[in-house]
Design a protein around this nucleic acid. Structure first.
Length: 128
DNA sequence: CCGGTGACTCTAT
DNA sequence: TATAGAGCCACCG
């Protein structure tokens, strides 16, 4: 097995909302694949993309997800503890929690209840 | 070019 | 179990 090919350097997301990079687009795509009522973690996505410890980049990509034309369900992406670490980036800190609750995902104290039960792993679901 | 920062995660103490 | 440090990669000044 050859060494993991370094991901092509994702160029910055243009303020125009155009993401011409690969890494970012893949993150968005994976996030969109998250079934309703399921959630995943940054690390899981990062690992699926090939960079297990580049979870920060996933988070950074999510930061730009708001300007993506196809809506990215960023509310389905939380940290490995199931904590809504990014809820404060939704404009209103209650938005993320409400969206999750709308999908039958219970949230208490900014943490998803039964997180592992709702956890959705792209590597397992997509199977690649 | 360098340093600081970040929607993270893992390992060590 | 909790706290601290390192690793990761890209953006910004």
């Amino acid at each position: 097995m050859q060494k993991k090919v370094p991901i092509e350097k994702p160029r910055s997301v243009l303020p125009s909302g155009q993401a011409d990079n690969d890494f970012f687009s893949r993150v968005y795509e994976v996030v969109r694949l998250i079934p309703k009522g399921r959630v995943t973690s940054y690390g899981a996505i990062a690992r699926f993309l090939g960079s297990g410890r580049s979870a920060r980049m996933v988070g950074w990509a999510m930061n730009a997800s708001h300007q993506q034309k196809p809506p990215v369900p960023a509310h389905r992406v939380v940290n490995r503890n199931g904590q809504l670490s990014g809820k404060m980036h939704f404009g209103d800190p209650t938005s993320m929690e409400k969206l999750l609750l709308k999908e039958k995902i219970k949230v208490e104290n900014d943490t998803i209840v039964d997180f592992d039960q709702h956890f959705w792993d792209p590597a397992t679901a997509i199977g690649l």
